[in-house]
Design a protein around this nucleic acid. Structure first.
Lengths: 110, 110
DNA sequence: TTTGAATATTCCCAATTAGGAATATTCTGA
DNA sequence: TCAGAATATTCCTAATTGGGAATATTCAAA
């Protein structure tokens, strides 16, 4: 169950890859373009893109000599679903805490 | 910048830790309770909780012999903020893609 | 004060990973 | 066809990590 979500988080658990995804948010990028923009080597860029690709986060379009990488935005949706799932019970807990805190204050006769 | 978010993702990038957080969503747990519930060893449970604690995701209340772990729900907020940030430009891209796809269809006289 | 429960830590091992360097592969343009 | 650009892959190393086993620590109850 959680394996899938955990591997999505794993793919996102790197500063360079986060920056890549943020770049891809606006437009497509080739490998060399990204490497220059991020100030990292071309092989490292390829490796990180490979990890994002394996995680289903990007798509590749072969364009003659180069590859255009694009964000697969729906791949981030499980993340939103999980947050929604988490928020449900959590907000009940938060309300409970607020209630208890207020009860406490009333007991103390504030 | 992204280092902080990346380390949050790193803390979430494990199935057992995700399950832990989902358990903590409803109530507090002691280490042994969690270990039994998850079917993993006590030392492993302690180690994972330590990682969640270092990431600021849980709080600990020392209660005599045991520790009660609780979810620090606001620690997940950077995740929501990032999704909001990402969604902004992304939805513009999505609308562009939809527009281009429709234009294409019209050109083909569908 | 001693026993045992609850928890954290340490040591070990196998697996993974980020990064650098070098190289292989594929394709374009002359 | 050949030189060079764009990209991927492999090899290497150091660091990190999850898990098991053993042990240390802390505290409560008898």
């Amino acid at each position: 169950m959680e394996e899938r979500l955990a591997s999505l988080f794993q793919a996102l658990a790197d500063p360079n890859r986060l920056r890549m995804i943020e770049l891809l948010r606006k437009q497509e990028w080739t490998v060399v373009m990204m490497a220059n923009q991020l100030g990292i080597s071309q092989p490292q860029t390829s490796k990180h893109l490979r990890i994002l690709y394996d995680a289903g986060l990007v798509t590749v379009t072969i364009d003659a000599n180069r590859r255009r990488y694009a964000l697969k935005s729906q791949a981030l949706e499980p993340l939103d679903a999980w947050r929604t799932y988490m928020a449900r019970e959590t907000e009940r807990l938060d309300r409970l805490e607020t209630f208890l805190a207020e009860s406490q204050r009333e007991e103390n006769g504030s």
